[in-house]
Amino acid sequence: MTTRRIEITVGIFVALGLAALFMLAVQVSNLGEYRGGDGYEVHAYFNNIGGLKVRAPVTMAGVRVGRVTAITYDAERYQARVSFTISARYDQLPTDTQASIYTAGLLGEQYIALEPGGEDEVLRDGDVILFTQSALVLEELIGRVLVNLTGN
């Protein structure tokens, strides 16, 4: 083995390792989404967020436009405060956009679905979405059905 051959094979090895890491970053993980700036942050208050988690998707017409970044409890309003980042490409959301928490599939993860309103003004960084719809909690729903059944 000459030094030259060793150097070349080591170079190939290191390049392969870095290429594998790059492939993991771009093809396997969510790093690809972060391209082109962060976007802007919007807040919304919900009575009940069900099982919503940080990093859950935010969708518009079923297309992912952002991610939930923080969930905190607001002690003054007795509500959950959900912050999410929307990609800067989607900066045309009206101020009366509605945010609802839905479940993907019967037992799937929960996500926020945005439905556009009719205002001309658009949402900016730090704005609060006024119209929200809480998550459906299965037990609550069953309870309501049972009350209705026994009531009649």
Binding site: G17, L18, A20
Partner: peptide, 9 residues
């Protein structure tokens, strides 16, 4: 780390 990255990929 390089070998582990290759393994995972």
């Amino acid at each position: 780390p390089l070998l582990a990255a290759i393994f995972s990929a």
